[in-house]
């Protein structure tokens, strides 16, 4: 399967040049780029690990791509996403987020059911990958 979180998951994987031009767009808007990675891509796993601090003072997309490639070297078997943060009043939140690295195979999720009262079911989405401990999930 292919996890479709982020703004561009239905497109072919972005090249570094394409990533750089999205970064350029975000920087023009005054947004700060953040690189995050995880090996638990559960849709409600909000807090991916931060690859350093958000790059508040960075103004060259090439530097972001460089950092991204450093992150890939360390965590190339995990999911990596770029997000762009807007600190302006009324937003103070992420304005763009997209996946820039995926594990070679994505095993996806199992839907667990627990039969409840009436026909009510409790659902749980479980990543197949998280059966292994953190750090050894996508080898």
């Amino acid at each position: 399967m292919r996890i479709t979180q982020g703004a561009f998951s239905f497109l072919p994987d972005l090249s570094d040049a394409q990533i750089a031009s999205q970064v350029q767009y975000a920087l023009r808007k005054g947004w700060a780029i953040n690189i995050e990675y995880t090996d638990d891509p559960h849709p409600r796993n909000v807090y991916w690990e931060m690859w350093g601090m958000p790059m508040f003072d960075l103004d060259d997309p090439k530097d972001v791509v460089h950092e991204l490639n450093e992150c890939r070297k360390a965590h190339g078997e995990r999911y990596i996403r770029l997000s762009a943060f807007d600190c302006s009043h009324g937003w103070e939140s992420v304005r763009l987020s997209f996946i820039v690295n995926r594990p070679k195979t994505e095993p996806g999720f199992r839907l667990e059911r627990q039969e409840g009262v009436g026909r009510n079911q409790r659902y749980a989405t479980k990543s197949y990958a998280v059966d292994n401990p953190e750090g050894s999930r996508y080898r």
């Binding site: 399967m1 559960h42 409600r44």
Partner: peptide, 18 residues
Amino acid sequence: FLYCMEAVNKAQAAAGEI
């Protein structure tokens, strides 16, 4: 409601997305 939520949860697991 019951069938819609079955569908929502199945699709969410299939896509890995809310």
